[in-house]
Structures are given as structure tokens and as C-alpha cells.
Write a protein that binds this DNA or RNA. Structure first.
Lengths: 342, 342
DNA sequence: CTGAAAGCGCTAACAT
DNA sequence: ATGTTAGCGCTTTCAG
């Protein structure tokens, strides 16, 4: 009859106690190398793997971390942002030898049942929360639990949290100043939803720059929803107002806008110059290539994991907001190479 | 002093035993409604949540399922396929009240350590394996364990597994016949990697159709790697051979190819007709809109979850391969509307 | 309908 | 360096 493969059984076969086997498995130094060899041999030949749940229960730590993505179902398919972010998070999670659990909120009815699972003790050691809508109750809810969490983005109410963000405002401001420096006067904005912190900050930053340059937008402002088609529609809607340059709050929307410009028989950057945000579209994927405010997405993911780990193990205890700089990557769509005679 | 919140403590406060509380939590019918009310009240006011690890250990089931995506890092960012698939899987996982854990293999060194975590008992009840390279040892490895698993795609060696796939071959064949019916004779193929089953099957299917139509491809075949830029390069490389129509094994690559055609001063579909595969690009995202063999990606994900659940709970015990039909969605890029005078 | 009691497989403090 | 022991919080017979 087959015995269940556990510490006790491995110990029996190796002629040691279960504690010793546990020590070997966990790399405890207090084991003679002779014993260690023997135990490792038994483990190898039996294919023994420790039972994760038992280990979690006894050690009160799961080595699992959760990634919560609420209400972003539409853009998740369409925007390379989340793929990149998940990649950065996943890679780092592997690196620190943990496991990643994904909590994707789709429709609203999911929400409460998922939330309660997120904070269920013994499932994850901590969570990363991303793409939170401004005023999302999730943050407050998490504050009320003792589940460690890190927010990606800027939580709206300014309350103390651990967070990782990029300098959306500064990046968008730089875009405005760059376009103004190129001589554009009738600038326009295609913004992202003001329900997200990135949307709000990029809008503010662009307006900062516009104001600094002594310009204004008049009515040349349209709202997109991160999707390519929303960018196209916004651009179509904007064309009658004859902007000479436009800042678009995401690459994905910019790709849509490029289509609208082309369809209207106009040329970017000659008729309309364009700067977008993200830096996630390769130069050879669009004509013209996109001048874009690049954000280090996978670094953000990596940092969020490391920060969360520090919060979990108690090495960081005072809320900190990490912000990564953004960088204006100049390519063709802004027309500055043309302007410089290149 | 604060007591730990567990079954025992809830029972103490409600004046019942821990067993009764457990019954209430798990919806056991053998509890008087009076007792049930009282216990539920205590649970609500204390915010008690059962300890997942303890539950897993005692019940020998985690209610967690794993999604394994090996070696697909490049396309994960770029191709809407994985977003859609993850969405379908995640939605269904929520629906059946389970939790989803993500195992993303990045670089090779990750692999063995992740694999061993995947099959670690007490972590997940079963896994869905996707995007497996042909000949990937992972399938064989999983066969050697008693971890339930479902493969998305077609495992290469034909051994018995539970799998969910789409009719790649039939769909690609339909594409060939459609183009042939439109009168094209110098057809071309931009294929996907032959290291993947979808790549192989779409290629075979297209060749089936070409042969049936009494045509051949001569040397008008190029290989892409699923990315947009590979599609662009392949198309550029193909143009000197003057194809009058091309089948491209994925939408993403087709978008790249469209750019190459445009840059060459040619027109799709007038100069080159095009049919691609996936049906994942909205009609308004490209000009012309893509005629594409649509596959029901999120349904595949949903079915995989349900099948896996059946395997886990033992209600399905004989390996079955589920295949979803594909559907040729005719839009502009194939030129059939022009041909019909529409 | 409810309670008592025996584990699930592991960790960690303690003892030797 | 190794073994002993007492839980971790839950489910699940088994009694009653």
C-alpha cells in the first residue's frame, strides 16, 4: 500500500526525524552534510514536494502575492500597458521566489466576492492594487484590514499608502512645452478618463505646460477612454477645430488618432503634430513613429513587488510614495526633426 | 488582549462549537435557522474570514487553479490574444468561485523552479497550460505527476490529454478557398512559428485549401513570429514576388503587413487581398478592416476552466479534446465586397 | 441538530 | 546536530 509522501515518510526512509528533513528542505545550516546528502537523495528519488498549504498554516506566510486589477476589462485586451506591467510583476515575483495570484474584477457583481477573497487570511501575504478608479472603495477597504498592500498609481485622497507611480504630470507638461517650442499655437488635448489618476495627472500636466507657454486650449479638448477607437473618434471630432498639434494621453489612443488623421487626408506631423504618452509602441509600428512620453512600466511593476515584499517582512514600515521619472522620446510624430531640417 | 479570530473564537462568542460555525460557513443544511442567524451575526460583526491555508490543509483542496504560460513573453505584450484568453479564464474562475494563479515563464532559468512550484501539492488544484511549444517537456512532466491539467492548443505527440483548441486547420483552409474563389492565383502565406501547434495547423490548413483549389505557393511563403513587426518584415520581403493575395496567420502580423503594403505605395485589397486569423481586431482599427478567421478566444478560456474543474472533481475521467469551430468574418481586406460590386 | 475529537503536513521552540 | 512536542485553523467522522 502506498504511503503518503510527507516529511514523516521521507524521514522514515532516510532514517531521520521529520524535523531534520524540514531543515534540509528549508536550507537550515544545522544539518551534517552526510545526513543532508542522504535526505536529499530520498527526496530526489521520491519526488517529494512540501505541501504548500501545510507550510503556510504552520509558518503563517504563503509566499504568494496578489495582483488586483479592478474595472479595467476593456483596456486589458487592447492596451500593451497591462501586459507589460504583468510581465514586470511576474518576473520579479519569480525572482524573489514567490507566486502570483491574479484578481481580475470584471463585472460589478464579482467585486464583493472577490474582495473578500483577496483579504482572506492564508491566501496571499500581500497585494498590489492597480488601475484603481479615483474614489474606489477598495483602497479604504484594504486600509481597514491588516493585509499589506501597495498601490500602483496615485491614490486620490492623499491618505497614507505605499505606492509606486510615474511622473505623469511632469511628463505631460514636457510634452506641452516641447510642442510649444516647435511653434505650435492651436494645441489640442485628447485626455484619458478623469476617473483614473493617470488621466487626471496627464491632463493637469499638459495644462501646466500650455499655461506656462502662454497658450490656451479653448475648446480643443476631447475625452478618450484609453481605447484605440476612442482615440480615433476623438480625433475625428477634433479636426474641424483645426488644431496644429495634439497631445494624446496614451499611445493606444494615438494610434487610433493617427488613423483618423490619415483618413481625413491630412498628414502627421505636417498638418498636425502629435505627442502621446507611454512609449510602448515600437518605432516601426506606426507611420509616422510616435513621439511619446515614455514611462518605465515594467520597472514600476518590479518596484511594486519589492516594496510589497519589504512591507510584508516589516523592513519598511512608513508609507512611501515612489515616483519614477518619465522621458520624452522624440521620434517623427511631433515633427521636430522636420523643423530641424533633419 | 485581542483573541485571534478563528472558528473556535466565533463559536465562543455565538455560544456554539467550532463545528457548528464551520457548518454555517460552508452552507451545511444541518443547522437550525436560529443558530445560523446567531452565528452569521457574529461573523458579520467580527469580519471573520476563514483561513484559506487551514481550510486547504484539512479539506485537501485549495479552490485555486493555475494558468501556465511558458515562453510567450514577447507576444504577451503585443498580441490581444493573451489578454482575451486571460479574461475568459479569469471571468470563469470567478464564476465558479475559485482563484487564479499565474505562472509566467520568462527566461529559461525560471522554468525548473516555477515548474516545481506549479506541481507543489496544496498550492493549486489543477492547471491550465497554454501556448506550449511543440515538444515542450512540460506536458510530459505534468503527465508524470497527478496534478490535473488541461492544455489549450493541440499537444504535439498525440498522447492522451484533456485539451481545448480551435479548428485552426479548417479555418485556414476556408481562408484559402475564399481567396481562391475570389479569383486569386498568386497567393502567399505569412505563417506563424512552426514551434507552436497553431502555427503548424494554420499552415497545413492553408496548404490544404491551396491544393484543393489546384494552386500552389511556389516560394511565396514567409515566417513570422506573431509580432506586428515580423508581419511587416515578412510582407516587405514578399512584395517583390508580386503575390495577389496573402493569408497571414494572425491579426497582429496582418496589421504590420498592412503597413508594409501601404508604405510600398500599394493598396489592400486592390493590389493585394488579405485574410488573417484571430478576429481580434475591431473593424475600425485598420484601413481596410480585416477579413479574418475568427476564433472564440474567451470561450476557449471559459471551456478550459470548466473542463479542468470537471477533471478535478472527478466528473470527467477520460481524456477529451474539445475543438471550437472558427468562422471566416468577411470585411474589406479580402476585397470580396469590391468583387461583388458592393 | 450539535459537539467532541482526530487529524491534515508542516514549522519552530525546546530539549538533548 | 538531531529528535520531541505542541500547535497553526480547519474539516470531518462519529456520538449523541
Amino acid at each position: 500500500m502506498e504511503r503518503r509522501l510527507n516529511l514523516e515518510e521521507i524521514g522514515r526512509r532516510a532514517g531521520v526525524s521529520r524535523s531534520t528533513v524540514s531543515r534540509v528542505v528549508n536550507g537550515d545550516r544545522n544539518v551534517s552534510s552526510k545526513t543532508k546528502k542522504r535526505v536529499e537523495a530520498v527526496i530526489a528519488e521520491t519526488g517529494y514536494r512540501p505541501h504548500a498549504a501545510a507550510r503556510s498554516l504552520a509558518s503563517n506566510s504563503t509566499d504568494v502575492l496578489g495582483l488586483v486589477i479592478p474595472s479595467a476589462v476593456e483596456t486589458l485586451f487592447d492596451d500593451p500597458y497591462f501586459g507589460r506591467l504583468i510581465y514586470g510583476i511576474s518576473r520579479t515575483t519569480n525572482e524573489v521566489r514567490m507566486t502570483l495570484t491574479l484578481f481580475l474584477f470584471g463585472e460589478v457583481p464579482d467585486e464583493s466576492s472577490i474582495i473578500s477573497r483577496v483579504v482572506s487570511p492564508g491566501l496571499v501575504d500581500g497585494v498590489i492594487v492597480t488601475a484603481t478608479k479615483m474614489g474606489d472603495p477598495l483602497i479604504d477597504y484594504l486600509r481597514g484590514t491588516n493585509m499589506p498592500f501597495v498601490v500602483i498609481g496615485r491614490p486620490d485622497d492623499g491618505g497614507p499608502v505605499y505606492s509606486v507611480d510615474v511622473d505623469n504630470r511632469g511628463g505631460a507638461r514636457a510634452a506641452a512645452l516641447h510642442l510649444a517650442g516647435l511653434g505650435h499655437r492651436r494645441m489640442a488635448l485628447i485626455s484619458a478618463p478623469s476617473s483614473t489618476s493617470a488621466g487626471v495627472d496627464r491632463r493637469k500636466g499638459f495644462l501646466d505646460g500650455i499655461t506656462e507657454a502662454g497658450l490656451n486650449l479653448e475648446n480643443r479638448v476631447r475625452a478618450g477612454d484609453w481605447t484605440e477607437s476612442s482615440g480615433r473618434r476623438a480625433m475625428e471630432d477634433l479636426l474641424p477645430d483645426r488644431p496644429d498639434a495634439v497631445f494624446i494621453a496614451s499611445d493606444r489612443m494615438a494610434v487610433g488618432a493617427l488613423g483618423a488623421i490619415r483618413d481625413a487626408g491630412l498628414s502627421c506631423p505636417k498638418d498636425i503634430a502629435m505627442v502621446s504618452f507611454d512609449g510602448l509602441v515600437a518605432p516601426d509600428q506606426t507611420v509616422p513613429s510616435l513621439t511619446s512620453v515614455a514611462q518605465p512600466v515594467s520597472k514600476v511593476g518590479e518596484r511594486a513587488v519589492r516594496l510589497l515584499k519589504s512591507v510584508i517582512d516589516g523592513s519598511v514600515t512608513v508609507p512611501e510614495c515612489i515616483s519614477f521619472p518619465t522621458e520624452l522620446v522624440i521620434r517623427e510624430s511631433c515633427g521636430s526633426r522636420l523643423a530641424n531640417g533633419m
